[in-house]
Design a protein around this nucleic acid. Sequence first.
DNA 1: CGAATCTTTGAAAGACGTCAACATTGGTGG
DNA 2: CCACCAATGTTGACGTCTTTCAAAGATTCG
Lengths: 229, 229
Amino acid sequence: MLENNFRNVSCSTCLHRKDNLLGGLIEAEINHLEDHKSCNYYKKNQLLFVDGSYPRGVFCINEGKVKIFKRGDEGKEQIIQIAKGGELVGFRAMFAEEAYKVSAETLEESNICFIRKEDFLPMLDTNPMLRNGILKELSRELTDRADFITNMAQKSVRQRLAISLLLLMEVYQDEPINLSREDMANFVGTATETLIRLLKDFKEEGLIEINTRKITVLDPKKMLLVSGH
Amino acid sequence: MLENNFRNVSCSTCLHRKDNLLGGLIEAEINHLEDHKSCNYYKKNQLLFVDGSYPRGVFCINEGKVKIFKRGDEGKEQIIQIAKGGELVGFRAMFAEEAYKVSAETLEESNICFIRKEDFLPMLDTNPMLRNGILKELSRELTDRADFITNMAQKSVRQRLAISLLLLMEVYQDEPINLSREDMANFVGTATETLIRLLKDFKEEGLIEINTRKITVLDPKKMLLVSGH
DNA sequence: CGAATCTTTGAAAGACGTCAACATTGGTGG
DNA sequence: CCACCAATGTTGACGTCTTTCAAAGATTCG
């Protein structure tokens, strides 16, 4: 159980840091972060921030998963992204200095650090590596979203589910995918019932294995074919 | 005819510059741009860049309109964005220092300046206002794309057409919207035939006026209702 | 163990895409 | 300047994918 494993993570020894935006910080900056960040335990389904509120800093996921979503006009969620350990969440609004335009909620119990913007933004002026990293990250997300739009517009639900499962495989790494049917439907962009029927098809076709809510992709190669990519 | 109006635009007197990313440049920077940029006339349907090629700089639209699109796996275009006079195009790939992930093509004859990356990127290090402007612009586009995704996932084609027409109204300002049916369909994310049928409906409902390929929104307020927003 | 939530299935209706034929338009060369 | 052709736009018919609503089955958690 994560709650028992909870600890105040150290930035200097954090393995994630090398791979993410904070990889280029110098020692003085890391020490400053270390002293000023906070580190919190979140239960499943806790909100990190909501659409319309103002950012006070950025969240750095140490362990756990977070969905980033937007509510459509009828209140239905569209999941834009699922972030895992090592990823920074909520930096867009902080850089733009405007309200969040999406919401973020934990999908499982998580340890998440928080860096106040007063401790983060000044580094932008002094650390060109950080600045470049941020530009690249924003760029990468723009690219992802252009693909997302194109898939939404041109692919069938069946194809989108295949694409989504392949993406979720990356997020869940070795573990089986563990999302509610509703969240998965809101990621694929379909009705829950349609999603369930298609999962059944995939199972019968030997593409996936289902254990209650846990899903394992058995044949990623065939899945790629199904996705039409 | 634009071809006759073609001129080598001056950065220092360019009216667009005040409103776009280049608004915060200092005089020395403007003069440097002025001396190093080039300015070109494009016919309708000319490519500025294509998916997969590497950026050498950034395009600054002086006059005209440009579609930014991506090809899906079956070769069908999805239009992600339509840029008008004043907007910079292609900067994402330049900042990220990677290949374009989308293509850009003129929708009408246009005058477009080109700034080589060697003349642009160094300013990032020296001009914090430019840097912030870029962060904000990337942020804005990320927000737009999250909305785009949500609309694609949750709205009917009829609603998406209404949304698209309202967006296109902004792009075309006072002039009537002037896009091929295919481009419009590729923006809305639907089949050309479906688009045509819905345009007919809108016309019969008094929402729009159609003159061959030119479309005028007659009742934006009612259009907003139709869009479901 | 039981209530609440989440998941699954069925049936019916509708939205949308595809195919094929036809009409209109705009640009080109004679 | 006109006639013609290729490209673009339009319409109809049809099938199917997807959603919606309703009800029954599982799971989970207190």
